[in-house]
Amino acid sequence: MKTSAFHVLRVGLAITFMWIGILIIANPVAWGSYIQPWAQDLLPGSLRSAMLVTGMLDISIGIFLVFNAYTWVAALFAVLHILVVFTTSGINSGTVRDIGLLAASMAIAMHAWPDRFKFWEKKKKYGSSIPDDSSAF
């Protein structure tokens, strides 16, 4: 991904997460109504408290993304968070939009992922060191 494109995506996603977090904190019970009844039963506390924590998590993800600090961790949390939203809210009118947010979060996480944790690239290097038999012919 081009660096400028990455930053445009990062700031755009940060704004979305922070604003959603603010809206959830402003009206937690209304946003909690999106959660399926079976998922509400699993909550350790009240629905309102759970949604307030969700709102604060969204704002935190947005702040880390906007400051470009621990971007890969923030993006990873964003991916996990959206997957939890998919699971607990089911398929509804907002699902298509969430797919876009999930893809954007994944793109940022993949781009900002630190080299020391790119285990698949180490494998690739190891793989390339094995002599290719076909070259003998």
Binding site: V11, I15, M18, W19, G62, V66, F67, N68
Partner: peptide, 17 residues
């Protein structure tokens, strides 16, 4: 307010950079 917030966030990212 959503528009102002979005613009302010863009400003935050520029100045933080």
């Amino acid at each position: 307010y959503a528009l102002l917030f979005a613009l302010a966030s863009i400003g935050v990212s520029i100045t933080a950079y």
